[in-house]
Structures are given as C-alpha cells and as structure tokens.
Design a protein around this nucleic acid. Structure first.
Length: 469
RNA sequence: GGCGCUGUACCCAAGCGGCUUAAGGGGAAGGUCUGCAAAACCUUUAUUCGUCGGUUCGAAUCCGACCGGCGCCUCCA
C-alpha cells in the first residue's frame, strides 16, 4: 500500500520497520480548552488510518500525547485562578469524552508531558553534550545551525527563513530560529528541577522524548495537522535525529485544515465550533462520513449545509442496514442466492484504500454497493438469508469497522417501555383494517400522529413496518 | 518575499496520460411502486474539468504563462 509522505512529497510503498508491527505517533491536544471540529478531522482521519492498517493485518501501536504544560494552560490557570493541573485534568477528560462520542477508538497510550520530565531532560542533556544545545541563564536553546538538514520536512532553508524576518529576534538566542528546549521558570508557573535550574520544558521536546520512550527511536508513522509541519515537526526531527543519530520517522502524514468560508478554522481566529457542539446536531457517523468524503490532505470547508448532506448520506446507509436486518431476523428464508459479486466490491475497496487511504472512493464504492444490492433485493423475493448475511458482513467490515460511518448494533433503539412495540403493532393492525375499509383519513391520522411521536410507518406490499427516528 | 496547497455540475467532491464521450453524496425535475406518504429503484441535471498556449496518436490529468482562493514562515490539528 501507498502512503503520501510529507518528507519526500511523494506516495511511497508502506514498509514498516518491523512488520507486522507498526508504530504510530500522533500529536494530541494541548488541554486548555475543548477541541474544535477542525481538530476532530485529524483525530478521525488518523483513526481511519489506524483501523485500516489493522485490517491489513498490522499490529498497530498508537500513541497520542497530551500536552499538559504549556503557555496557554498557564494563562488559563491564571485567568481562572485555578491550578494548571486542574485545567489540564478537566480538558483531558473532555478530550477523551469527545473522542469517544466521535467513535474514535482509543489510542494504546496517552502519555502526558508532565509525567515525562526525566525523559525530556535526558534528551536535552544529550543535545547539550553534543554541543547542539546551549544554555543562557537557565534557558536552553537548540542551535539549528548545527543540524545540517534543518528544514527538510517543511521545504525551507535557513537563509530564507532568516530573510523572512517574521521571527522575533528575541532575547539572547544566537539565531532567531533557535527554539526553546528548556524555559527558565517565571514566578508562579508550574516548574521542575533540572540541570539548568528550575523551569519547564519547551513544547517540541515532549514529542521527541515521549515517542522515543513509548515507540522507540525510529517510528513508522507520525501524524498531525498541516500546521504542525513547521516548526513543530521540523523541530522534532532536529531534536531526535541529532540526539539519537538515526532516522526519526519513516512516514510523515499531515491532515488538511477544516475551513469556514475558505478561512482556516482556528482558535486564534475565533471562527470555530467545538466538536461537542457539532455533535449535538449531527451524529458521529455523519461527521465521519463528511470527513471521509474528501481526501485527508486537502482543505475542506465546513458548513451546516455540508454536514446536513452527510447526515442524509448516513441515513441512506442506515435504511439499507435496517432492510438487511429485517430480512435476517425473519423466521423464514428463501432459497435463491443472487449472482452478486460481493468479493469484487471488497477487492475494489481494498484497492482504493491501499492508495493512500482514498476514503472518498471507498465511500463512493459503498454507495455503489448499496444501490446495486437494493436493486437485487427489490427484484427478487425468494432470497436466501445467507445472501443478506454476506451483504451485512461487507457493510460491517468496510463502513463500520474501518470507516466508522455506520454502527449496526446501534440501529435498533430500545423501546421506551416493554409494551411499546406491542402497542405500536396494535395501532398498525387497526390501521390495516381502516385501510381495507378505505378510511384513509383515519389511517393517515394514525400515521401522522405516530410520526409526531417519532415513529415512522412504512407501508409495503408485504405489510407495514415501523422504525424510530 | 520564500515555501506549499488549491480552482471539476446548483452545492460538496473523486479522478491525476488511454479502462472516464468525468465516480460518489446532497439538491432539483420526471417516472416505477403505493389509496396517499415514506423507503427503494430507474431516468435527467459537466460534449466538459479557472484562462490562454504547448507537448502527445491521445490531456481534467504533463509543461509554460496568466487569473483567482487558501495555508505555513509566530501558539494552533
């Protein structure tokens, strides 16, 4: 299979270091606020990548870090007059809750920065001993001029960056591009002891330290949003490769932004919706379908209209799944097995997903599948149960297990109380008789009233069925 | 200024040299079924892929120029 590698700007054959093991690291949240629906795009797409790799037989170990020491957390802590630990704890919890609601499978491990001070200090010491880091008054900086290939990920070179001049010529750094490894403590901030005095770690060092500790010095996949390419990931490479003298990451994957009216959704611009709020209005499946319908790397606009379209799309899948379920749970089975090549759809699905996780085509294929299957079901009435089971199996493996755009077990909402089904069936029977007497006014009244209550009746040749909204 | 992404139907979006005289979703219109709905299915909705040139037997796909939109270069998925 192929993966687009930001480092080489090409799709490359995916060959992990120790197959079938795959190590995957993703830059997680800084826990100072709820994450927004743009952040959700990255987490969901990484989730799909991970699930697909598992489907392909890889044993994926996924690590997502939690940044719980950072300027913004400190600021919020000061603003709200609460301890930084409390802020971080609260929003980490919210992070996990939101991911769960988005049906994102938990990572294997969520390391916290504040629990890895020793590891970070070790890396900084290593860099210092190699003459790559320098200490000025308890602030330790990384000397980018000491790392030959600095800029290789983001396609920048040092001269241009310096000429760019948007970088603050700050403090006593040798070079404006040098970045903080260790920051000297200011009054009232969270801080730790270190060989350079009391202070706290810079942002980039945590990912180098934690990915190394939990996944090893070389990892297969490192993922994150586009905005992390520079400087964050560039700096991670500089730190890890200078310290450990081996290739840090084989495949760099980056996710495109979610835009609002063609502008990047971001906290600083204030044009964001939290994932939480969006989930109030749209199902996790709809949100996932919305993201899966476009390639992960490019920009994508967010709007109510587009989410609504995706929600409709999921309903189409659900209607199909319910139709299958109905046939499967029937007592009787026909004896006709249609000539319908489910394997071919499977092969196509795998083929497009193998090509750098082409989820839009995978989704298109699922809709093709549904249309073809619906047609066959409508045209034949003596179909074997095994056929429905095979259709269901395809839907489960592709749409549920890999993409997470439908969840078959959740289709049947539980009755509100145990008599409910019986009562509805009673009404359906009464209505059947009314229809026979051509008393359509009353029949429609029953249907409309039930609809208002969230019960949808559907007539067909074989009788009336109902479902809940 | 540097680097990168992007421009395909009413909206979203895939395709990235011949399998495509351009997938899929949403919307709209017509039809089948139905007492009517709903669901489902069928048909229609881009002779054309920002513009202009070039390469090629062949281009939405490659090259060049131009015109738009966006991002990164500063914390941000």
């Amino acid at each position: 299979m192929l993966i687009y590698n930001t480092l080489t700007k090409r799709k490359e054959e995916f060959i992990p270091i120790n197959p079938p093991k795959v190590t995957m690291y993703m830059c997680g949240p800084t826990v100072y606020d709820y994450f927004h629906i743009g952040n959700a795009r990255s987490f969901i797409m990484a989730d799909i990548v991970r699930r697909y790799l598992q489907f392909k037989g890889f044993q994926v170990k996924l690590v997502i870090n939690i940044t719980d020491v950072d300027d913004k957390i400190i600021k919020k802590s000061n603003d709200e007059k609460k301890p930084a630990e409390e802020i971080a704890g609260f929003y980490s919890q919210a992070f996990f809750e939101d991911l769960e609601r988005l049906k994102v499978k938990p990572a294997d491990f969520y390391p916290k920065a504040t629990l890895h001070l020793a590891e970070m200090i070790e890396v900084i010491k290593e860099l210092e001993s190699k003459g790559i880091a320098y200490n000025i008054d308890g602030n330790v900086f990384y000397d980018v001029s000491k790392f030959d290939t600095y800029g290789k990920l983001s396609g920048k070179n040092l001269d241009e960056l310096e000429a760019g001049a948007r970088v603050d010529v700050n403090e006593k750094k040798k070079n404006p591009l040098d970045f903080s490894l260790w920051k000297r403590a200011k009054e009232g901030e969270m801080c730790w002891d270190s060989p350079w005095g009391i202070g706290r770690p810079g942002w980039h060092i945590e990912c180098s330290a934690m990915s190394t500790k939990h996944l090893g010095r070389s990892i297969d996949i490192h993922a994150g949003g586009n905005d992390l390419i520079f400087p964050h990931h560039e700096n991670e490479i500089a730190q890890s490769e200078a310290a450990f003298e081996q290739k840090f990451v084989r495949y760099w994957m980056h996710f495109g932004f979610l835009n609002i009216q063609n502008e990047k959704m971001s906290k600083s611009l204030g044009n964001f919706f939290t994932a939480r709020d969006v989930q109030q209005k749209y199902s996790a499946e709809a949100i996932r379908l919305f993201f899966a319908q476009t390639n992960y790397g490019g920009p994508l606009n967010f709007s109510d209209e587009l989410l609504g379209a995706a929600q409709k799309g999921t309903e189409k899948i659900i209607n199909f799944a319910e139709r299958l379920e109905e046939e499967i749970t029937k007592e009787s089975s026909g004896n006709f097995y249609p000539n319908f090549d489910v394997k071919k759809f499977f092969g196509e699905f795998e083929k497009v997903m193998d090509d750098d996780f082409n989820t839009p085509q995978a989704v298109a294929l699922i809709f093709d599948f549904i249309r073809s299957a619906n047609k066959i079901i409508s045209e034949n009435d003596n179909i074997q149960k095994e056929f429905y089971l095979e259709l269901k199996s395809f839907l489960k493996k592709t749409a549920e297990d890999i993409l997470g755009i439908v969840h078959l077990d959740e289709l049947k909402k539980p009755p509100m109380f145990f008599l409910e089904n019986d009562l509805i069936n009673l009404l359906i029977n009464i209505r059947e008789n009314l229809k026979k007497e051509k008393n359509y006014t009353m029949a429609d009244l029953i249907r409309n009233k039930l609809h208002e209550m969230g019960i949808i009746l559907q007539d067909s040749k074989t009788g009336t069925t109902f479902k809940r909204k």
